[in-house]
Each structure stands twice: as C-alpha cells, then as structure tokens.
Design a protein around this nucleic acid. Sequence first.
DNA 1: GTAAAATTGTGCAAATAGTCACAAGCAAAG
DNA 2: CTTTGCTTGTGACTATTTGCACAATTTTAC
Lengths: 205, 205
Amino acid sequence: MGEEIPKIIIGRLPLYLRVLRRLKNEGEVYASSQELGEMLDISGAQIRKDLSHFGELGKRGTGYEIEFLIEKIRQILNINQVWNIAVVGIGDVGHALARYNGFVNRGFKVTAIFDSNEKKVGTEVQGLVIRDIKDLKEVIHKEDIKIAAVATPASAAQSVTDSLVENGIKAILNYAPIYLKVPDDVLVEYIDPAIHLQKLSYYLG
Amino acid sequence: MGEEIPKIIIGRLPLYLRVLRRLKNEGEVYASSQELGEMLDISGAQIRKDLSHFGELGKRGTGYEIEFLIEKIRQILNINQVWNIAVVGIGDVGHALARYNGFVNRGFKVTAIFDSNEKKVGTEVQGLVIRDIKDLKEVIHKEDIKIAAVATPASAAQSVTDSLVENGIKAILNYAPIYLKVPDDVLVEYIDPAIHLQKLSYYLG
DNA sequence: GTAAAATTGTGCAAATAGTCACAAGCAAAG
DNA sequence: CTTTGCTTGTGACTATTTGCACAATTTTAC
Ligand SMILES: NC(=O)c1ccc[n+]([C@@H]2O[C@H](COP(=O)([O-])OP(=O)(O)OC[C@H]3O[C@@H](n4cnc5c(N)ncnc54)[C@H](O)[C@@H]3O)[C@@H](O)[C@H]2O)c1
Ligand SMILES: NC(=O)c1ccc[n+]([C@@H]2O[C@H](COP(=O)([O-])OP(=O)(O)OC[C@H]3O[C@@H](n4cnc5c(N)ncnc54)[C@H](O)[C@@H]3O)[C@@H](O)[C@H]2O)c1
C-alpha cells in the first residue's frame, strides 16, 4: 500500500483507462482482465497484478466494474480534476494542441498559449489569445499552471524550459527533438515522431 | 551477432543518434559512453552494452568516433535511405506532419497525403496535393510506400488502418487514441499526448 | 441447494534488463 | 619503450518485470 508504484505500471494505467472508457461508451458494465488484455495486447495476469497494487478492485467470477475502475484510475492519476496546461510555441504543433478538443475529458485543458513572434502575439487560436513569452510569469501564476507543453524549435526549447521551471512549472511535455535538462523535481515526457519511425524502419529491414 | 536484438535496445538507438548528431554539429569528433550517458540520463555502462550488440564500435581510451557511429546506427536502423511516408487524415495533426521539415534528414519524407473530406481533396499542403482516400491503392503502389501515419479521428482509424494494411503498408504511426488491430507482420507505434500528460499528473500528486 | 463455470489476487518461477567492476586495449607523456 | 591515464567490452551479479498456476471467491445453471 504505502510502497512506491513502479513507473512502468503508472505508464499502463492511462491505457487501461482509455479502453475502459471505450467499453463504457459501448454500454458494457463489467470487463475481465482477459478481455481488457486482448484489447491492448497485454496479458490478463499483468493487468490483474498492476491493478492489485491499488487494492482489490475486481470481483471474482465477474471481473472489474467498468465505471468503478474508471473512477479509481482517474483518482490514482489525479485526473479527477482538470489541469490547466500552457503551450509554448504556437506553430503547427502548438496550434494543433491548442485546438485539440480531446484533452478536457481526459483531465487537461489548454488555458494559456505563448509565442515569441510579435506577429503572432495578440492573435487568437480557439478563443485563446496568444500571449507574449515575456508574460509567462504573470499568466502561469494567475492560471495556476503546473504543466506545460514545449513546441518551439529545438534551438529555443532549453531556454524556454528554463523559464518555465523558474516560474514554477513542475512537468513538461516536450515536442522538440532534444533532451531537456531540468532539476530533479521537474518531470519531462517526450514526443518525437521521428524516433517512432526509426524504430519501425529497423524492423522493415 | 545473429541473435535477436531486444526491442528496448532498438528503442534507444534513435536517442543515441539524436545526441550524436548534435555533438557532430557542435564540431565534436569523439564521444565517450559516459558523456553520451550524461546527455541522455542513461548510464555509460548501458550505452556500451547496447552498442556492443552490433560489434566493437568504440576505441578503448578514446571513446566512439561520432561520425562512424552515426553511420553505423543509421545502417542498423535502415535509415541510410529515405522512406516515403503516407499521412492519412489532413486535419491539424496531419497538416503539421505534412509541413514538418525535420523528417528528411532523419530518414523519412512525407510523399503522399490523404483525406476523405471532399472539400480538402485536391488542395495543396507544402506542395503536396491532398489525395482522396479512395486512391490509396494506386498512390501507395506508385510511390512504394511501406509506412503510414494515421491522423484521422478515432472513429475512422481502424477502418483506415485496414485499408492501409490491405494495400501493403507494413508499419503504422498512429495518432488516434485507440489501439489498432493489425496482422502479426504489421507494426504499430502510438503517439498520444494525453497518455503522457496523465503519467505526469500522477506524480504531481 | 449443489455442482460447474468464471475470474480474481497472488506466491513463486522465469525471463528480461540494468549495474558493477575490471581485464584489455589504446594514446600520450616522458 | 615504459609508464600513466583513460575508456571500452564484458562476465558476474542484482534488480525489475513478466508469466504461470492455482486457491479463493462469486455467479450461473439446473
Ligand atoms: N510539425 C511536426 O509534425 C513536428 C513533428 C515532430 C516534432 N516537431 C517539433 O515540434 C516543435 C515545433 O514544431 P512546429 O512544426 O510546430 O514548428 P513551427 O516552426 O511551426 O513553430 C514553432 C513556433 O515556436 C515559436 N517560437 C520560437 N522561439 C520561441 C521562443 N523562444 N518562445 C516562444 N515561442 C517561440 C515560433 O514563433 C513558432 O511559432 C519543433 O521542435 C519540431 O522539431 C514537429
Ligand atoms: N490535435 C492534436 O493535438 C491531437 C493530439 C492528440 C491526438 N490527436 C488525435 O489525432 C487525430 C487527428 O487529430 P486532429 O486534431 O488533426 O483532427 P482533425 O479533426 O483536425 O482532422 C482529422 C482529419 O481526418 C479526416 N478524416 C476523417 N475520416 C477520414 C477517413 N476515413 N479517411 C481519411 N481522412 C479522414 C478529416 O477529414 C480531417 O481532415 C485524432 O484522432 C485526434 O484524437 C490530436
């Protein structure tokens, strides 16, 4: 109970949540570990073991009650609230993030967008005004933002990150294709499609 | 030598490549495993062990010759060629992918873009004409495309995937937030920012 | 009310991944 | 040409992760 949950398990919870949501949408009420596993290419045993870290969440003979499990995972992941997100760098990627309407029911909402290009600052995307990167401090505090996405060119990503950290950001989703240096208490996740493509091309021989 | 290389090692090679490229750009000629490790938060021992699967690539006392190692990894990952990529679903995400100029020197080039929306078909993005999804077969064969990115809404992703597979696509990069069912000889990688954000929010308590 | 079927939770075993530490090899200095 | 310093490659060890198999529990069928 009080033990540290392995990172790799935390990484699977969002996947479980995604498929549970889908089943709920289709009107299902219960799901077995086997069934979930087949929808995710993960063994039922692994799903059971993962979930068992958080208590006895299933019912023998029946499986897991979908609605209950969704609620439980949301609670574990701290997404039974909506986190305000800042996006920095409103080019193609930042634009797509700002306009994406799939975040809200997954626990996040883009509430502040920043760019350094004076031609962009002041214009609107999806009802949000692009703010000058110089206003980072003010906006982050006002909106109580703890998570930011970095979508600037690689050359600007580290300095933008430094500003974000300095202003209290504790977690970063980085789209720039570089490794970011941050203090130990700040977390970074990376998205780089070229990395995925390179993994794929390995197997295409 | 003839053994199967673990997936997890293949997954790290693109990261090594990225940082090697950067060092080369900065004019460096040699890099030690220690140095690379510090730039990636990976232990030097691990990098050495990973690379040792592919032969004796370093020189004792000196480290790894950057240019040589880059070439070697490119060869291992099969990116000493440029792969043509198809993007299906030219909304915000597909648009960003089509316009991204960072792929080419990493082994990929978007050469075909598809949508089902008649208003979009025929218009241009980055010099490429958006093709009707119905022309998938023709274009994929003509351009000899083996890898595709799916950037349609989730509701269309599985059927689009089925068409892609039917037309000979062997690897898919999926942006839609669902798990795709594909035959065993087809590979899928997933990108879903909400999944990353949910991992982050877990640690923000 | 009992037997059969289903499904969890979990101890244990197996497999996979990562670290340590050092012999071996190379380069530079003297 | 020997010594010193550095860094790889790797065997042995440790840690983590996954899979197996089954008792325990619940549901369903008759
Ligand atoms: N487009 C893609 O599909 C794609 C794919 C993979 C990775 N990426 C990466 O994502 C990042 C963004 O890509 P993009 O295609 O949107 O680029 P882009 O050039 O379209 O947009 C970058 C934006 O960042 C802004 N910017 C630059 N410096 C800034 C600073 N210091 N502070 C705030 N804003 C700043 C620019 O004004 C611009 O609006 C890049 O690092 C790119 O390599 C993009
Ligand atoms: N925008 C983001 O930042 C973001 C983030 C995460 C995930 N996603 C996911 O990526 C996907 C695309 O997102 P988006 O924001 O670009 O959506 P979008 O609605 O802007 O674009 C979707 C495009 O797909 C096309 N399309 C629909 N059905 C099709 C079919 N059968 N064949 C070909 N094309 C078809 C539509 O015409 C449209 O142009 C979605 O699944 C979304 O959930 C987007």
